[in-house]
């Protein structure tokens, strides 16, 4: 398409201007993270990467990051396996109640954590499960399974029937067909799902906040909130901690951005 030189220049101005708006908060927190933590540090220079080590120790982020990794591992691995199994049934088999069951799962994509968190807390407290990894992880598995079932069903529906017919002729059972043909073939769709579930779990705030009242299972974002409450003076250590909490997902995003963008755009329920 031909457009005038003025319009082209205007476009570059928009690209750069908008990028700056997005980058300013990111740059400001990075600058604060490397800045001096107090007056005596300011006299020693302007660049302080040691803030990260200090924040890591003082904010106990070693422990919180460990909890986050554990929770993410449990949630993602459980949710992925369960979603593949249920998505396989919805995507390739005909059965009574199929539609109703599928809509039941779709419902879960829309239900906010705010709606279920209140009864979950009081019921799990009665069962003595609060402050365990199960109280933090299983509600998130349920949320992820709702999305995962929807996502995997779409993948299995997109597989050409001729592939499944060929496997059936070869006498492959339903289970073998799934694990030796369909799952390896669906690696891109599964990767996208894993990446999204990891991001949601890592960044989740309300569920771990409520489900671990003693702070025993405090994930990294909660550690940051706690750190903010403790260290009200100075911004450097808090900024350094914030950067560390965001880093795992941001790094993964730069490595696999196509999966992030594709998943979040296509994952929106279009009924």
């Amino acid at each position: 398409m031909r457009v005038s030189a003025t319009e082209r220049t205007l476009n570059y101005a928009i690209l750069i201007g908008f990028s700056l708006i997005v980058l300013t908060p990111v740059a400001s927190i990075l600058a604060a993270a490397f800045g001096p933590a107090n007056a005596s540090a300011a006299r020693e220079g302007a660049f302080h990467p040691s803030n990260f080590a200090t924040a890591w120790v003082e904010g106990r982020f070693g422990q919180y990051m460990g909890t986050s990794v554990l929770v993410a591992l449990v949630v993602v691995s459980l949710a992925v396996v369960l979603s593949i199994l249920s998505g396989y049934a919805f995507g390739t088999m005909r059965f009574r109640g199929e539609q109703a069951l599928f809509y039941l799962f779709l419902l879960g994509i829309m239900v906010p954590a705010e709606a279920i968190i209140v009864p979950l807390f009081f019921d799990l407290r009665t069962l003595g499960l609060t402050d365990t990894i199960w109280a933090v992880a299983l509600p998130q598995v349920a949320q992820s399974v709702a999305f995962g079932t929807y996502w995997m069903r779409a993948y299995f529906k997109s597989v050409s029937p001729s592939i499944m017919d060929a496997a059936r002729v070869d006498g492959a059972s339903k289970g073998r067909m799934l694990f030796s043909i369909l799952v390896p073939m669906g690696r891109p769709a599964i990767t996208t799902m894993v990446v999204l579930m990891f991001m949601w779990t890592w960044n989740e705030f309300l569920i771990p906040l409520v489900m671990s009242p003693s702070g025993e299972f405090r994930t990294a974002p909660l550690g940051l909130a706690f750190f903010q409450g403790q260290y009200t003076q100075g911004t450097a250590l808090l900024a350094a901690a914030a950067v560390m909490v965001a880093l795992p997902v941001v790094l993964l995003y730069f490595l696999m951005q196509r999966h992030f963008i594709k998943g979040m755009l296509e994952g929106a329920v279009k009924e």
Binding site: F18, S19, V22, L23, P25, V26, S28, I29, A32, M199, W202, N203, F205, P221, L224, A225, Q228, T235, L238, A239, A242, V243, V245, A246, V249, V250, Y253, Q257, F260, I261, M264
Partner: peptide, 19 residues
Amino acid sequence: LVFLPQVIAMVVVAVAFKQ
């Protein structure tokens, strides 16, 4: 770049904007 805010944990975004 413009998609980046979507993947940053909201708590981190909050800390940045609070400053």
